[in-house]
Design a protein around this nucleic acid. Structure first.
Lengths: 267, 267
DNA sequence: ACCCGAGCTTGAACGTGTTCAGAAACAGGG
DNA sequence: CCCTGTTTCTGAACACGTTCAAGCTCGGGT
């Protein structure tokens, strides 16, 4: 993050493909091919050996390129994870949407969404713990709160917006709260992820049980918030969240507008 | 964590000092002196240059020993942080206790305890972020949930027990909840720490404001839990916490026993 | 045909955390 | 005093992530 004034023409680690000025690229996606090859190889090795035991040299050798070449396409080893991150988020969104189709009960929808995540992430559990610490670094672009992971986060938040809006609970809530909830539910997922990462029981059974037990509570809590008695408290909580929680997560959806120009980074 | 069958006689990184079998050591604490020298030097450099920019070679040179010697006393660079961790927890406990003496209002006591932490940690904010990712590794002994950091955690939990028991709120709560609350409040601190680590505002002003705004809410929530209407919900929440949250934190205090067969997995 | 230059690729070299075979200091016992 | 075993200490060596100056490739301008 210090010396990016000399990078000649490295295709910024995102997947920005088509440049706005029409075609200036030669012709084939040869470059993209190499990039994909490296990413694919890396993810395979990560899964086979774990993150720490997969060296950049091994990735390069296995992919049939040089170490330097890997660094031409990926700023660092961490950035190779971003691919995995995006991919899994997308798979999760699809799987969850399919699974909760038809279900109207909010509690059930929420549970399905979380369990779907656990299923999608299951095969990565072992090496997830290893790169979790990387994601915990506030300076890393891999932090779930960072701007760089905005696209993946936005996708996930959108999923939870769907969880709510497709449920029979949605019409009963006041608009303001409904606007906040998707991101709060995403935070709930983050808590589950935290739990999951530390979970060492076989098949992460404990986390699964945790989800089964915690979602009804969340559902009931939200459901209760409608009643007049809680008005003052809900109001306080809402403003706390709006002022102190959401801003630190980075803009995901345009609650109003005035959003700064969302970086044109398609996933 | 793989090959600790060959360590000859390295004084285990903990602070185990006096061996139970009377004196078997030569005479002076020469060894301890070296250990302390290395630790002291490391912490000074960490504070001066930050964690990442402080190399083991620099620590060794500055302390006037060899690199290998540092590794004789500390299993890894991470372990040098444990000292800081313990020290700060202790300082916090003292400072907070002193500051809230005389205050009976629960909200105020809680706020004081948290603000005291922010003050104690202030000078380390810069490099705290750097080693935060280390603490996030579930396999690391530096994780706040690990068994190795049990002593520091127990001290902190004890502080929050005092926050509650010294307040006018304590007598009004049912015993079971009162038993759970100290660890929950500690979790609250962990959330504040998470917020703090990501906070980039000058003097972490944002976190301070977050504390001022969130503690009244927590206090009110706890206070409300007494009323009959919430009985079922509080009961559910309590059992969820007891079964799924506290066991993953590691035993700090023997709440009772009879805890469900928590898998005997000492990490 | 020539070469220009940007995109792409290389591998040696740097600085890092960590390890290891042994040297040095030290404490008794003969 | 020398031998022996333990504790303490040493610094070269290792494997890793990362950088960099230089080379290669190839389409297009002249």
């Amino acid at each position: 993050m210090e010396d990016n004034g000399t990078t000649t023409g490295a295709p910024a680690a995102g997947t920005a493909e088509e440049l706005p000025g029409g075609r200036a690229r030669p012709k084939t996606g040869k470059s993209e091919q190499t990039r994909a090859l490296i990413l694919e190889t890396a993810m395979r090795l990560f899964q086979e050996r774990g993150y720490d035991k997969t060296t950049m040299r091994a990735i390069a050798q296995e992919a049939g390129v040089s170490v330097g070449n890997a660094y031409y396409y990926f700023e660092s080893k961490e950035f190779l994870i971003q691919g995995f991150y995006d991919r899994m988020t997308y798979a999760h969104a699809l799987d969850a949407a399919a699974r909760m189709a038809g279900e109207r009960d909010f509690d059930a929808r929420l549970r399905i969404a979380l369990e779907s995540w656990l299923d999608c992430a299951a095969e990565y559990h072992e090496f997830a713990a290893q790169f979790f610490r990387t994601a915990a670094d506030p300076d890393s672009s891999l932090s779930p709160f960072s701007n760089e992971s905005h696209p993946a986060r936005a996708t996930a938040v959108e999923l939870f917006r769907d969880v709510l809006s497709g449920s029979d609970l949605a019409p009963k809530l006041d608009a303001e709260l409904a606007e906040l909830l998707p991101e709060l539910l995403w935070l709930h997922l983050m808590v589950v992820v935290l739990y999951w990462v530390f979970d060492r029981t076989p098949d992460t059974a404990r986390t699964r049980e945790f989800v089964r037990r915690s979602t009804p509570l969340v559902a009931k809590l939200i459901s209760l918030s409608r009643y007049r008695v809680f008005r003052p408290m809900v109001r306080d909580a809402k403003s706390l969240i709006q002022d102190f929680i959401l801003p630190t997560i980075g803009r995901t959806t345009a609650t109003r507008s005035a959003t700064p120009p969302a970086p044109p980074r398609p996933t």
